[in-house]
């Protein structure tokens, strides 16, 4: 099978040079063809595991982080907010 690697890259927000794209496509096709050898198993419906149920959290407000601390790693900050290229929607 051939994979539309550029479409996949677009979904993943990656940019691939053409030679790189071809290389990745080939690697992926190899892996995918390996995967195609997986045996077909009976489909048991949705992927759930009721034997390991979730433990819930109580609805309690806790700990407080300082905004400065939270934004310290951000590439661009203004007026207490992270700045990104202008978006309209």
């Amino acid at each position: 099978m051939t994979i539309d690697i550029q479409h996949v890259a677009k979904l993943a927000k990656l940019r691939l040079e053409e030679d790189q794209a071809q290389r990745f496509a080939k690697d992926m096709e190899n892996i995918v063809s390996m995967v195609q050898q997986l045996p077909d198993l009976p489909d048991t419906g949705a992927l759930i595991d009721p034997d390991h149920p979730m433990i819930f959290r109580g609805d309690v407000v806790e700990h407080h982080y300082d905004r400065k601390e939270l934004l310290a790693n951000a590439p661009q900050v203004k007026a207490g907010c992270v700045v990104v290229p202008k978006v309209v929607e």
Binding site: Q76, K78, A79, C81, V82, V83, V84, P85, K86, V87
Partner: peptide, 10 residues
């Protein structure tokens, strides 16, 4: 969005 800022704030 703010007219004074080149970009959007999150």
């Amino acid at each position: 969005h703010s007219a004074n800022i080149d970009g959007s704030l999150v």
